[in-house]
Write a protein that binds this DNA or RNA. Structure first.
Lengths: 346, 346
DNA sequence: CTGTTAGCGCGTTCAG
DNA sequence: CTGAACGCGCTAACAG
C-alpha cells in the first residue's frame, strides 16, 4: 500500500457526491444537508483527511507562516528570541520558518528569498553585522509583506522595531563601574553598521560626562565582533601608558574572551581591571570571575516582534504603523566588577 | 501601489512570450534560446520574481519542510535540539516547522494535524509524558511520511530513533554516588510512559547490583514530572526511618527543586544527602550547590534526527530502515555530590 | 526552440 | 440544498 494523501476528490468519489459539496461540508458552510455533512465528516476523520495548506495558500494568498531571520546561534540570545516568537506565533495561529544568516550578507540575501518563496505573511529580522545595503529588505515592502526588525534594526527602513534601552543600559553599567571607583574605562564598541553599537557607545559617553570623566579616544576601540581580534585589542589596551582600570565590552562573548586575555597577561580582575559585558549569556555566570552584564528579555523580544507583525498583517497597508517597542533591561552585578570586600554570588 | 507577488504570467506578458518558455528559462531548461533566457532572467531579477513554493509543492508533492514536535520549552534541552535540527535541515535544503505539545496529549494530536496540513516531508517527534495512544503517529506511516523519534521515543512504532545511553549514564552517575561513600540512594523515577524512565531506572538498579547494595523499594519513587509533587516526595524520603544519603533525580529541574526542599528541611548537601540530576541544564551549574548531572549532546541529537529523516525521505518506502542512533553522554561532577574536602568548581 | 493543454487540491462563483 | 466550471501559480506532456 503506497502512501497517499487523502483529498476532497477521494471522499467525494466514495460518497458519490460532488467535490464542492464535500468542500462545503468541511468548511462548515451553512447550506448543506445535515446527513451528507455528517457522512463527509465521518469519512474524513476515518481517512485522516487533512486540508492541504499549499492548495489553500495558493487561493487565499495567505500562508499563515511567519519568517524569522537570525544572524547567529553562537550566543544564547537568538535561540531565546526564537522560543518567544514560536510561542506567540502558535498562539496567533501562525507557523514559524527560521533562517540564519551566519553573519553573512550574501546568506542574508538568500534568506530573504527563502522567505519570499515560502510566501511568508510577515518576517522579523535581525541584520548581520555586514549588512550595509538594504534592497533585499525593501523587497518585502514592495510585495506588501510586513517586516519587523528586532535587536539589530535597520534605521533606514520605516518599519516597526523591537529593541531594548541600549543607551540607558550602557549608561547604568558604566555608572556602576564608576561607582566602584574606576576612572579609566575602556570600551570595545560594536560595528558601526549596527545601530545598537552607537546607542551603547552613547550611553557610555553620557555616563562619563555625568561623572565628569574625560573621554579618552584611545580607550574606545571599534571592533567588528570578530572574536579573533579581541586578544589584539585587549593586549593593546593593557600596554597603554595610562592603562585602563575597567573594560565595557559590547557583548558577553567578547567580555569573556577579554577576561581570558587579561588573566593570561597576569592582571587581576576586578582589582587591576574590571570587566563588564552585555546580554547575560548563560555562561556569563559560570566563568571565573563571573561576569557583570546587562540581561535582556530575549523571549519577550521575540514575542513582541510577532505581535507587531500580526498587527501589521491584520491592517491594510496604508495603515501600517512603524511602532517602536523599547523593552527594559536589568543590570546584573557579578564578581568581574565587584570589589574584593563584597563576596556574594549572584 | 498595492503589494503584488510577481508571477510567471506577469513576466510572460511583459515579454510577450508564453508562460512555459518563461518557466523553462527559470528552471534552467536546456532547449531555449539564449537571448530569451537572458531577457527572462533579467526581468525576473528586476521584478524580484520568486518561485511560489506552494504552487510547486502542489505539483511535486514535496514541501521541502520538516516538522519537529517538542513537549516543552521549560528545560534548556529542547531549544538546543531545535538549533541542531535547524542547522542540519538548512544544510539539507529543508525548512523546519516547530510545534510544541506542552506535555498535553490533546495538543500533540493537534500538532500532528498541523504537520499533515503543511505536508511536511518528514517529522521528528519527542512525545508528551501523557501519550499512551499512538494512532496520531501511525497516520504518518499510512501517508508515507517518515517519522523519527528522539529522546522520548515510541517503543511501539518501528521508526528510526535518536537516544542517548540512558542506561549507561544512569549507571555511571549512581556508581559515582556509591564511590563517594553513599549507600542508601533514592531515585525519583520518570513516568512509566516514557521509555527513558525505565532505561535510567535499570541503570540505577544495575549500579546497585554491581556494588552489592540491596535495592530498597521505598527509595524508588515513581513520579510524573509534575514539579509540584517533588516537595511531597522528597519530604517523604527525608522522614524515612532509614533516611537515604543520596538522591538521583530523573532530570535537572527535579533535582534542583529537590535541593531546595532538602535545604529548607535543614539538611546539608552533599554531606547528609547528595543529589544528582540528568541532562545538564544551563542553570545546573549556577545553583548552590552546583548540580552533579549527565550532559546530553542536545544539538547533535537534533542534527542526527534530521539526518535520519532525510535519509528515509530519499529512500523508497519499502527500504525504510528503523536505525537507532545512541549518542554519548558525559558525567559532570559538581558540588552536590562532591565530598567537602575537594572544593574545585567545574 | 516554442506554444498549448492539462492538472496538482482547493474554494468560489454561477446555475440549477 | 447541490453540481459544474473556473482559477490560484506552476510544471510537464504533447504538439508543433
Amino acid at each position: 500500500m503506497k502512501g497517499h494523501q487523502t483529498t476532497i476528490v477521494d471522499i467525494a468519489k466514495l460518497l458519490n457526491i460532488s467535490k464542492s459539496t464535500v468542500s462545503r461540508a468541511l468548511t462548515g458552510h451553512p447550506s448543506i444537508k445535515k446527513e451528507t455533512k455528517e457522512a463527509v465528516l465521518e469519512l474524513a476523520q476515518k481517512l485522516d483527511y487533512q486540508r492541504n495548506m499549499h492548495a489553500l495558500s495558493l487561493i487565499t494568498r495567505k500562508s499563515n507562516t511567519l519568517g524569522i531571520i537570525v544572524p547567529e546561534f553562537i550566543t544564547g540570545y537568538f535561540p531565546k528570541v526564537i522560543i518567544g516568537a514560536q510561542e506567540a506565533a502558535a498562539m496567533a495561529g501562525y507557523n514559524l520558518i527560521i533562517s540564519q544568516s551566519n553573519e553573512s550578507y550574501a546568506t542574508e540575501v538568500e534568506n530573504t528569498k527563502v522567505m519570499l518563496a515560502n510566501q511568508v505573511d510577515g518576517v522579523m529580522i535581525s541584520m548581520t553585522k555586514e549588512t550595509r545595503n538594504f534592497d533585499h529588505f525593501s523587497v518585502f515592502g514592495r510585495k506588501g509583506i510586513p517586516v519587523v526588525f528586532y535587536n539589530r534594526i535597520c534605521e533606514e527602513l520605516e518599519t516597526p522595531r523591537v529593541i531594548v534601552d541600549d543607551y540607558d543600559a550602557a549608561f547604568r553599567i558604566v555608572e556602576h563601574l564608576i561607582k566602584t571607583g574606576k576612572k579609566r574605562i575602556a570600551h570595545l564598541a560594536g560595528p558601526s553598521t549596527l545601530s545598537m553599537s552607537s546607542r551603547r557607545l552613547n550611553g557610555y559617553l553620557a555616563a562619563l560626562k555625568k561623572y565628569k570623566i574625560q573621554v579618552s579616544d584611545e580607550l574606545i576601540i571599534p571592533y567588528d565582533l570578530d572574536m579573533d581580534k579581541v586578544k589584539i585589542y585587549v593586549n593593546h589596551l593593557l600596554q597603554l601608558k595610562k592603562r585602563p582600570d575597567a573594560l565595557f565590552a559590547i557583548n558577553d562573548p567578547t567580555a569573556i574572551e577579554a577576561i581570558q586575555v587579561i588573566k593570561k597577561a597576569g592582571f587581576k580582575i576586578p582589582r587591576d581591571i574590571a570587566v563588564a559585558g552585555f546580554t547575560n549569556d548563560s555562561i556569563s555566570a559560570l566563568i571565573e570571575p563571573s561576569l557583570t552584564t546587562i540581561s535582556q528579555p530575549a523571549e519577550k523580544i521575540g514575542a513582541t516582534a510577532v505581535e507587531l507583525l500580526v498587527d501589521q498583517i491584520n491592517r491594510p497597508r496604508n495603515q501600517w504603523k512603524p511602532i517602536i517597542k523599547v523593552l527594559k533591561t536589568e543590570l546584573i552585578i557579578r564578581d568581574s566588577t565587584r570589589p574584593a570586600t563584597t563576596n556574594n554570588r549572584s
